[in-house]
Amino acid sequence: MDQTSNLLQGFPPVINAQTHTLILGSFPGVASLDATQYYAYKQNQFWRLVSASLGSDLVKLEYEQRLQALLAHGIGLWDVFHSCARTGSLDSAIRDGKLNDFSSLQAMYPNLRKLCFNGQTAGKMATYFKERGYITAILPSSSPAYAMRSFAEKLQDWQHELQAVNSE
């Protein structure tokens, strides 16, 4: 095997031709990697934040149905990093992160116009994408490790950004 075989591998994007907003995390946590599902860790607030923002209870749905419901709202999922070395699930533990290939994103998905970064680590890429014509927003992390703000406080930002693009 090659030198990168010891790196953890992320997931492919959840996106289609109607996707106008892409939520970008940094890299899947241990529970997500184990389950092969975005935001599988039960304490992560992602699915609750998205559900409340869209007014649709995605939490009660099976995983594939959650993804289809997101896509039906024009929202996709991906991560900033394709692969990395990391012990545990904290963003601060990410080492040797390799970026996903975003170079053909605009050409392949012309309706994609907004990127919402789930937390500060993913948000480090916001300026890069803004310079390429995307609307960008850095959301408060849905991770339970980010406890400086309450769920209600996080929800205000998530609702503002996810509803703003849906009303355009």
Rank of each mutant, 00 (worst) to 15 (best):
F11M: 07
P13S: 06
P13F: 12
P13E: 04
I15D: 08
N16D: 15
N16K: 04
A17H: 10
A17F: 06
Q18T: 11
T21G: 13
I23R: 15
I23Y: 13
L24G: 08
L24D: 03
F27A: 07
P28A: 08
G29P: 12
V30I: 14
V30S: 12
A31G: 03
S32V: 11
L33D: 12
L33T: 11
A35Q: 15
A35Y: 01
A35E: 10
T36P: 02
T36H: 15
Y38M: 05
Y39V: 05
Y39E: 14
A40D: 14
A40Q: 15
Y41T: 02
Q43P: 08
N44F: 06
N44I: 00
Q45G: 04
R48D: 15
R48V: 05
V50Y: 07
A52Y: 11
A52F: 05
S53R: 14
L54T: 00
L54S: 03
S56W: 02
L58N: 07
V59W: 04
V59P: 04
K60E: 10
L61C: 11
E62R: 12
Y63V: 04
E64M: 10
Q65F: 04
R66L: 00
R66F: 00
R66K: 15
L67P: 00
L67C: 11
Q68V: 07
A69M: 12
A69V: 09
A69R: 15
L70A: 09
G74W: 05
G76R: 01
L77N: 02
L77R: 03
V80S: 06
F81R: 08
F81D: 04
H82Y: 03
H82P: 01
H82Q: 09
S83F: 05
S83Y: 02
S83R: 12
A85C: 11
G88L: 10
G88M: 03
L90F: 11
A93E: 13
I94Y: 02
R95I: 01
R95N: 04
G97W: 14
G97P: 07
N100V: 01
N100T: 06
S103H: 02
S104E: 13
S104V: 12
L105D: 02
Q106G: 13
Q106C: 07
A107D: 05
L112H: 09
K114A: 00
K114Y: 00
L115E: 00
G119V: 07
G119E: 08
A122N: 12
K124S: 12
M125V: 01
M125A: 07
A126C: 08
A126L: 08
T127G: 02
T127P: 01
F129N: 03
F129D: 07
F129R: 03
K130V: 01
R132N: 12
G133D: 08
Y134M: 05
A137Q: 09
A137P: 00
A137T: 00
L139W: 05
L139T: 07
L139M: 12
P140Q: 04
P140S: 05
S142K: 01
S142I: 02
S143V: 02
P144F: 14
P144S: 10
P144H: 13
A145F: 14
